[in-house]
């Protein structure tokens, strides 16, 4: 991996076999339009593929989308594995995540932010820009 462009590098994925990636694709397009480098894993990806890509691609930030309700298991598992492997980049989530569960993901599992339905692309892009600069901003559990 050669890192020369100075662009913010983003990894976007779903975790597990949930196929709904319309929202994630839209976010990918918006981040690219904002000048970021997006590594798009997309739908139907298991945790080990995401961790491997995060390591190999030396990304600044990871975005995970959930729709079918697997986030309560899959996202905490992913967070533990990332931190165990020494990857401390911010992880941002989006999709259909009830507010109380979003709070839990942030407070107990170290997710940096959760964007619920109705979040604008502008807010998301701004957050990624702000957050990617602080690679170690979220502390390991």
């Amino acid at each position: 991996m050669v890192r020369g462009s100075g662009k913010i590098r983003v990894l976007l994925s779903k975790v597990g076999v949930d196929v709904h990636d319309r929202g994630l694709k839209v976010v990918a397009s918006a981040l690219r339009d904002a000048g970021m480098e997006v590594i798009y894993l997309g739908a139907s990806r298991f945790q080990d593929e995401i961790v491997k890509a995060a390591e190999e691609e030396d990304v600044d930030i990871i975005g995970i989308s959930s729709m079918e309700g697997m986030h309560h298991v899959k996202i905490p598992e992913l967070m533990r594995e990332l931190r165990r492997r020494g990857i401390h980049v911010p992880v941002v989530c989006g999709g259909i995540i009830p507010l109380n569960e979003a709070k839990e993901l942030k407070e107990e599992h170290g997710v940096s932010e959760v964007f619920p339905p109705g979040s604008s692309l502008r807010e998301i892009v701004e957050y990624f820009k702000k957050c990617a600069g602080s690679k170690t901003s979220s502390t390991p559990n």
Binding site: G16, E68, M70, V73, K74
Partner: peptide
């Protein structure tokens, strides 16, 4: 184990 958390969800 790879689909833990997704069984019976959708």
């Amino acid at each position: 184990p790879r689909v833990r958390g997704e069984v019976g969800q959708g």
